[in-house]
Nucleic acid binder design. Sequence first.
DNA 1: GACTGTGAATACCTTCACAGCA
DNA 2: TGCTGTGAAGGTATTCACAGTC
Lengths: 223, 223
Amino acid sequence: MIEPKIGAARIEAAEPLVEVSIPRLYAYHRALRAAQGAGKRTITSHGLAAMLGHTIASTQIRKDLSALRPLGRRGHGYAIDPLVDQLAWVLGLEHDWRIAIVGFGYLGRAFAGFITARERRFNVTAIFDRAPSVVGQRWQGIVVRDVAEMERTLADAGCNIAVIAVPAEAAQECAQRVADLGIRAILNFAPMPLDLRGAVIVRNIDLAGEMAILTHRLSLEAL
Amino acid sequence: MIEPKIGAARIEAAEPLVEVSIPRLYAYHRALRAAQGAGKRTITSHGLAAMLGHTIASTQIRKDLSALRPLGRRGHGYAIDPLVDQLAWVLGLEHDWRIAIVGFGYLGRAFAGFITARERRFNVTAIFDRAPSVVGQRWQGIVVRDVAEMERTLADAGCNIAVIAVPAEAAQECAQRVADLGIRAILNFAPMPLDLRGAVIVRNIDLAGEMAILTHRLSLEAL
DNA sequence: GACTGTGAATACCTTCACAGCA
DNA sequence: TGCTGTGAAGGTATTCACAGTC
């Protein structure tokens, strides 16, 4: 266990957060903002679980939240406002993030729209595609550039996250190139595991894999 | 441990497969089809790991594959053809699947195109949207119907999987309605956990949650 | 009494080490 | 020797049970 730094300038996690908990913390954050909007000042772990459709157990919520720093009051619940702030802090949601979309087909467009609508501090600042018909188009004022020009133009956009939404064959090359250009975090939609040298954080969105879980389980039931 | 049914009509898993392994098995299947296409007849667990960019350890691959039924030959590796068949079988990829897309914005379109391109046996047979400008459009010959008509038209399409790609506010209602109409499996893109009564298999694609993992880790590094 | 925080127990998943076999 | 298959070990995540606090 790590000793909490009492004198830390800003709230800080008491223990290093485990990765699996992060999407849950993000879900709490979203639900709590909704509660905030509805004028609530306080919430219990059970109340939060109910807001999340009981897809997460209240003990899981308490465990997750206790990893931040004791924020609840026994017998009362959690004060929502400081909890929202704390969650935004640990999730990195208080920074602005500049996102490069590589591959601007339906998937790239869908992601760009989705994520900018969801988080105000997520900004798409560069878009690349290979198709001549797409290059030169604009999206929210951003001109789609040719992937071939990535080396010249990506640095100017000051991106810290890249989203790879290109066909499988092109994914590895695109990912390595953005990594070489200094991007430290990649969200990969290509059904193709990336192997990158260097300390790049990669998360894969495995759409077909998720479908396979459904078809596997459905065909089990059919027996 | 479960006793393998020796006399089973078709190859069958020796042990119940754990859910986490399914997307991996699907990745193996894809890689092996590629190897097949390249004319290879046999592969080792190390060779497969290399094809997957060493994102999965070879011991993990052997563990996963050994859960199916011994298919490898010690000292030689795996014969690719029967392995591909066996994987297709356990993943349910030998059936045809009929998919309903609920919400035909960029995300719905992206998913429809992506998944039908990837697996020949995944068919989109019904599409619904709420926006009058979208209703009546065609995609690959399928007419987009009004979500309000779902009760009348979904049954005809014979779908067994629904993809929820609607805004968060509408997700719960749409999901419950498709479940009430007999759909047993849902892939949910809405950032909103669904709680459904009845035995419906739900998988969530949490795009914002994945982004939160990236922003969390990037902001850790910045310290 | 109500609810959080947390050690202990459990379940789960992955990695290791090596036996078994061609 | 080369590689699979697998029990054992290790590590990680979740659930339980309850002590602690308001």
